[in-house]
């Protein structure tokens, strides 16, 4: 099975540029691979199907049933899968040079926003801008950390953008860096944006958006509490969920609780 997975992972990348965040054609092969027979069973925590052909199973408890009939069936299924994956890989590599992806309908809105930011705030404020196609083509703009306050003020106050409603602030711990994602929407034009700010892991800090949108107040406190991102400019930066004397930031990927029982 593991060589199966490598094969699908090693398929030629379809030349994705920074243009899209959502496309992952390799993954559909991966989901098909998980099915041996049709029938919709609920997912188990392990990605492997219940009966790997090799009896070596990582779990301490019993390995599942193996009998010659099943072995043969599994082999046949594995071969069929390989054939399918190979055919797909071929089709992918052939199809890609033919048709570039159609531009997203929200691309002009993204370009307009990026243009505004570049002119009004600073030329280098925008690090990246792309359309998140999975999410209904939401424009995503990655903004440089030290320009964030000005960009935020621009997003709220500029007539064309007018994002007066901050929906959600999420902190993300990507292992190499940390991110804060702000989801904005304009109640009049119903246009939504996602703005990301990347920051490093040792001393993460993102300028607080509380002076601009009051919604950010507790959201940023929660992110500080659980992830450790500091928000200079926040009126009341202290822990909100965890007890005030807690050590550490629980939602980080490398968080080791002092007391594993808790």
């Amino acid at each position: 099975m593991s060589e199966e997975r490598d094969k699908t992972a090693g398929m030629p990348s379809s030349g994705d540029t920074v243009g899209t965040a959502g496309e992952a054609p390799k993954e559909t092969a991966g989901t098909v691979e998980g099915k041996e027979q049709s029938g919709q069973e609920q997912a188990s925590a392990n990605a492997e199907p219940a009966a790997p052909a090799a009896p070596s199973s990582a779990e301490a408890s019993a390995a599942p049933v193996v009998d010659p009939e099943r072995e043969a069936k599994l082999k046949a299924a594995a071969e069929a899968r390989e054939a399918r994956a190979a055919a797909k890989a071929k089709a992918e590599s052939e199809a890609v040079p033919e048709e570039p992806k159609a531009p997203s309908p929200k691309q002009p809105i993204l370009d307009a926003a990026v243009g505004l930011i570049r002119t009004e705030v600073a030329e280098d404020a925008v690090e990246e801008a792309y359309i998140n196609e999975l999410n209904g083509h939401m424009p995503v703009i990655v903004v440089k950390g030290d320009r964030w306050s000005e960009v935020a003020a621009l997003m709220k106050n500029h007539a064309a953008l007018g994002c007066n409603y901050l929906r959600n602030v999420t902190g993300v711990d990507c292992e190499t860096h940390m991110e804060a994602v702000y989801h904005l929407v304009s109640l009049e034009s119903k246009q939504d944006y996602a703005i990301k700010i990347k920051t490093d892991r040792e001393a993460p800090s993102v300028a607080s958006a509380t002076p601009i949108w009051a919604t950010a107040n507790w959201n940023e406190r929660e992110i500080y509490d659980l992830l450790g991102i500091n928000f200079p400019g926040h009126p009341d930066m202290r822990r909100i969920m965890m007890p005030d004397d807690w050590v550490g930031h629980p939602l980080r990927k490398d968080y080791e609780p002092l007391d594993p029982e808790v």
Binding site: A21, G22, E23, A24, E27, T28, G30, T31, V32, G34, K35, G39, Q40, E41, A43, S44, A47, P49, N132, L134, N135, M138, R167, N168, T170, V172, V181, H183, A194
Partner: peptide, 30 residues
């Protein structure tokens, strides 16, 4: 599919719960 594996990417959806806007932001690595 039997194993639910969303493609890599992120999504934020929101619906109207009786209390207001409940949203779910998922970042998936595949």
């Amino acid at each position: 599919p039997r194993v639910i594996r969303p493609p890599a990417g992120e999504v934020y959806v929101r619906i109207e719960s009786p209390r207001g806007e409940i949203g779910c932001h998922i970042i998936s690595k595949g």
